[in-house]
Design a protein around this nucleic acid. Structure first.
Lengths: 302, 302
DNA sequence: TCAAAAGTGTTCGTTTTACACCCATGT
DNA sequence: ACATGGGTGTAAAACGAACACTTTTGA
């Protein structure tokens, strides 16, 4: 616990902390519906797995431009700490969270923000935590909550409104990218919340931070490399169904994968999975083979 | 011309400015051999195209840790300017260069540097300029020079010493990445200059900046998207041979491409090239068809 | 006639995609 | 029996690497 009072008030860090949780767990473990946005109240249908980012209400004194809105947890850089250390301290101070997971630099955000009189540079960092690790710190005086980024239900809805998902290189509530049109000579076309009719979700420029952090998160799941080794977490537990891993992947990437193709890719020679030999029949249908990560995600070294 | 004296001395910007030039042009237009590193003096054989980064001697007063070494051009952030503006002003002040090209953020470098008593955060930016635009500012009181990153000759040499290039996902004087082994479950293995026997090239942590900027530069050339639209320059002139574009690509990526495959990819339906109908027979061999960019790189808007 | 570089045809193996079918369980 | 998801076979299509061959110029 670092009682840094000696801080640079012109150097802020904002954290995009992702977590993935299924609807059933969320409903049973989070009692305060206001902490989840959009709220589940009166919501029909099952969400399945959902990807969230941790948010807090904007401190009106510090962020006059964002009063009443929610923002990413942030803080100032201490004079005697590295950026990496600061990101861990801020997670600890603001959320109570001990980040054992790997955290990565996203970039510098230069937009006018917070006190408009004081120029503040904002360094964004991102990482993913297990839901269990953030769960107990939700709510409280700080009103720590979760903002939905993508879910199975969100993808269904998006598909109904915008046609098939495979025209997109990933969709989320914070924006998406259209696939290059094959005929057009230009690259991907991105759409952020600032350009949609529904408008911005968080205060300040934090929607952009979430969007770009999410774009980086997606990289954890391309190729056949172990995403959990990259992220430094193990959200699925000791052993899991392939379909669980698939759902996890789909929600993080904001796109659908074909079941048989996914299975074959994951079970290829070079895979990071190994069969445990056991099966699970807790759910309807044929019992599923269970798999585990060949190498556990390394503990985060400081 | 911005006479900013009001600066943040704890916020620095360093610029990785790439340029590509062929040996003949370099020899005929740069009279001072000391500005090119490694020097051409006594060098046999043709370099062909080469990729360089712009460097300056370290200011011993400002950078006691790097006295005698060369470093990237840099400067401090002004109180009234954005990071983007600062990067342009620094290019102007330090080099005389009007950056009309697009410049991109690379990241924050937090290492101890410059005055060891004063904590300085360094924001790295990168971009590519046409050789003609930087040429006239080489030399002078500031001793502006070029540091080789990759060239056809470098790749030849590397190939002789390390076996075939296709085990690597790009090679350069500032480091390389080995391809994932297909059997191994881990990702790419990178080697930076700090880990090689030849050791670091530039002072401070600027080798790392060059390496990571170069890794981003490589992205301009993957896929079938127009690299020059991405970079904001047009280094090949109005019309060019496909083999010129190929050499340019190879030197920037630090890897070889098969001639026929390259041709077919570039001339596919979705290409960013269009034939001008003219041919060029200035060089030996069959006259080459000339091509142009379907869309010119957009002028950089400030 | 030869070297040099441009440009094309064709093969072969791999990867991707799609679709269809079979399997094992609980109700 | 049948709904529900798990798991596999297979074939068409797309892609990529490799190789060999043809073409057109200057020397």
């Amino acid at each position: 616990m670092n009682m840094t009072t000696d801080i640079y008030s012109d150097k802020a860090l904002d954290l995009v902390i992702f977590t993935v949780v299924d609807e059933a767990t969320l409903r049973s473990k989070v009692w305060d519906d206001e902490l989840i946005s959009p709220s589940y109240a009166g919501q029909k249908g099952s969400y399945g797995l959902s990807l969230f980012a941790v948010t807090v209400p904007a401190d009106t004194a510090l962020y006059p431009l964002a009063s009443g809105q929610r923002v990413l947890p942030g803080g100032y850089l201490g004079k005697s700490e590295s950026l990496e250390q600061a990101s861990h301290r801020i997670a600890q101070d603001r959320l109570g969270l001990s980040l054992k997971t790997k955290i990565r630099q996203l970039g510098i955000f230069d937009d006018p923000k917070r006190d408009p009189n004081d120029r503040v540079l904002s360094f964004a960092y991102w990482g993913m935590v297990n839901f269990e690790d953030i769960r107990k710190f939700l709510g409280g005086k700080e009103r720590v909550g979760l903002e939905l980024i993508c879910s199975q239900l969100f993808m269904d809805k998006f598909e109904r409104e915008n046609g098939t998902l495979d025209k997109f290189d990933g969709v989320s509530r914070f924006g998406n990218r259209k696939m290059p049109d094959a005929k057009r000579k230009v690259g991907h076309d991105k759409t952020l919340t600032s350009q949609t009719k529904s408008g911005r979700i968080l205060g300040l420029d934090h929607d952009d931070m979430v969007f770009y952090a999410w774009r980086q998160l997606r990289h954890a799941f391309d190729g056949r490399l172990d995403p959990f080794r990259y992220l430094g977490i193990n959200p699925l537990g000791e052993e899991f169904r392939l379909s669980d891993l698939q759902e996890f992947t789909e929600v993080c990437r904001g796109e659908r994968v074909q079941r048989d193709a996914f299975r074959r890719m994951m079970l290829a020679e070079t895979s990071y999975l190994s069969s445990t030999g056991r099966t699970d029949s807790k759910r309807p249908g044929k019992p599923a083979n269970l798999y585990e990560l060949s190498a556990p995600p390394p503990a985060h070294e400081q």
